[in-house]
């Protein structure tokens, strides 16, 4: 069961802004998702999950990178070849 408090915390952790009018709706939706997983939990899990694929690796080879212009083209703000962000610390 998801509470309004859980939704507020998750929203804060995920840095998603939601206002109070949306809380009830998101609480209902999140509960719905978890209830669906509760159904999955009722399946027989005695058989071990068999994953046949593993160790999907690449050789240590250098491939071309983007140019600085390409790298920065979606950035809101840039300065001297850097991405520019609000202050942190």
């Amino acid at each position: 069961m998801v509470t309004a408090e859980d939704v507020r915390k998750v929203a804060k952790l995920a840095d998603v802004g939601i206002d109070d009018s949306e809380i009830t709706e998101f609480t209902r939706q999140c509960s719905g998702v978890l209830e669906y997983f509760e159904i999955l939990d009722t399946l027989d899990q005695s058989k071990q999950l068999i994953r046949e694929r593993y160790n999907i690796l690449r050789e240590d080879e250098v491939t071309p990178s983007l140019s600085q212009e390409e790298s920065l083209q979606n950035a809101g703000q840039t300065e001297k070849g850097f991405f520019k962000a609000p202050r942190v610390m």
């Binding site: 250098v62 491939t63 071309p64 990178s65 600085q68 790298s71 920065l72 001297k80 070849g81 991405f83």
Partner: peptide
């Protein structure tokens, strides 16, 4: 595959 040899290079040129 971006090169790790970036220390003398311009920012955001190994991405």
């Amino acid at each position: 595959g971006c090169s790790t040899d970036f220390r003398d290079d311009e920012p955001n040129t190994h991405t």
